[in-house]
Amino acid sequence: MIPVASNLLLTNVDHFPGRRIVAHYGLVQGSTIRAKHVGRDIMASLKNIVGGELKGYTELLQESRQQATDRMVAQARELGANAIINVRFSTASVAQGAAEILAYGTAVTVE
């Protein structure tokens, strides 16, 4: 889902398989802090009784990750890069019901 939305090439290894890196632009990052809303919270607390996947949360976090990635990609594009290597994601709960999603990587130009 992520690579399609951002026509920049992303990998999470420290090189680009099959291509040569010709320029490095350094660290690029994107983050978003999202809170879950009450409707989802009520559904989640019901789902908490029987356990299993909380689809509302899965979607919420996916959207947030997409947004963080988009911001990172925008930053890389500003630098004139055409790929980001060594992408990492990190999630931190900053408050009850709110989470920060961070995406970071190294912007490069590949052949």
């Binding site: 990998t11 999470n12 908490n48 009784i49 029987v50 299993g52 996947e53 949360y57």
Partner: peptide, 27 residues
């Protein structure tokens, strides 16, 4: 991280999968 052979690579993209789960009341 490294490919173990020199086969030609057609494309490389980031693939992501995620799931949020919760434990049931009894557990």
């Amino acid at each position: 991280k490294q490919l173990t052979d020199d086969r030609p690579v057609a494309s490389a993209t980031l693939a992501v999968g995620s799931v949020a789960v919760s434990v049931d009341y009894y557990k």
